[in-house]
Computed example of a mutant assay.
Amino acid sequence: MEDLIAELRTLLNGGGAHVSFKEATSGIPFKMLGEAPHGLPYSIWQLVEHIRIAQWDMLEFSRDAGHTSPEWPKGYWPSESAPSDEPAWLRTLEKIGDDLEAFMTLLETEDLYKPFPYGNGQNILREALQIADHNAYHIAEIVMIRRLLGIWK
């Protein structure tokens, strides 16, 4: 079990074949966070905020039977294309890291396979894989936008 948890931690942190969230979001000029190049539907800010909202929702669903998810899809996407200011950007990045760490605690303290007493048979393992898959998908979009904007290595 320890090996599986270690692999899940690596996966959730962007290890192996994936760019990490931290790597994908570091060094972005603030003024470019709201850019949506070539008619793309989302900016980097909107993708990062979407990651925050969705990851928070999966975390809360995993630890609170009374949690109510946002309305889909509207509640999962910010309407603004850019953060209001740099502190808002930094708070979002910090919240994503804090929520991910809180989820990691669940990985280490809960039975990975035991279905939640609510929901439709979900468990911690399923939620971990869903967070990793969802984040990797949108992290790749962030990298693509950065390439289109000429701000990727």
Rank of each mutant, 00 (worst) to 15 (best):
G16V: 10
A36K: 14
T105V: 13
K95T: 14
I139F: 04
P70E: 03
A36R: 12
G150Y: 08
W89A: 05
K22Y: 08
E49V: 01
L8K: 02
W56A: 08
A65W: 11
N135R: 13
I5M: 12
G150F: 09
Y118C: 12
T105E: 13
Y76A: 09
E108A: 08
V19D: 06
F61H: 11
L129D: 02
L112R: 11
W72T: 09
G150C: 10
L12N: 05
I96H: 02
L107K: 10
A24D: 01
P117S: 10
G75D: 08
A88H: 07
T105D: 11
T109E: 15
L59M: 09
T25D: 05
E71Y: 13
L11R: 09
F21Q: 03
S69E: 08
R52T: 04
K153Q: 09
I53R: 08
N120D: 14
S69Q: 12
F116N: 05
D3W: 11
P117T: 09
P41E: 11
A17Q: 14
H38E: 15
R126V: 12
W89P: 00
W72M: 14
K22P: 01
S26H: 13
E110S: 15
T109P: 09
F103W: 06
W45Q: 01
H50D: 01
P78K: 00
G15K: 05
D3I: 12
N120V: 10
S81K: 07
P37T: 04
A102E: 11
L8V: 03
W89R: 11
S81E: 06
I53N: 00
N120Q: 15
W152T: 07
N120L: 14
T105S: 10
W89N: 03
I131R: 08
Q130I: 12
L112D: 09
I5Y: 06
P70I: 08
I124A: 05
A132M: 06
E71C: 07
N135P: 04
N135T: 14
A24G: 03
R52W: 04
D98E: 15
L90Q: 15
F116E: 09
A36I: 05
V143S: 07
R52M: 02
S81H: 02
G16N: 09
M144A: 13
L11H: 02
Q46K: 12
E141P: 04
K22D: 14
M58A: 03
G119S: 05
A82I: 07
L149C: 05
L107T: 10
L47R: 00
K22E: 14
M1D: 13
E141L: 05
I53G: 03
L129W: 00
K95S: 13
G39R: 08
D57K: 01
M58R: 10
D99I: 00
A17N: 15
I51T: 01
M104H: 14
M144F: 12
E2T: 10
Q130K: 13
G121E: 08
G34F: 03
D57M: 06
R126C: 06
A128D: 04
R126F: 13
T105L: 11
D99L: 02
H67S: 02
T25A: 05
G66W: 01
A24T: 03
E110I: 06
I44D: 02
R91E: 14
I131N: 02
E110K: 15
K114I: 00
A136L: 06
P117K: 09
P73L: 13
L8Y: 01
A17Y: 12
I145H: 01
K22N: 12
Q55F: 01
A88N: 06
I142V: 15
D98A: 15
W152G: 00
A132F: 03
L112G: 09
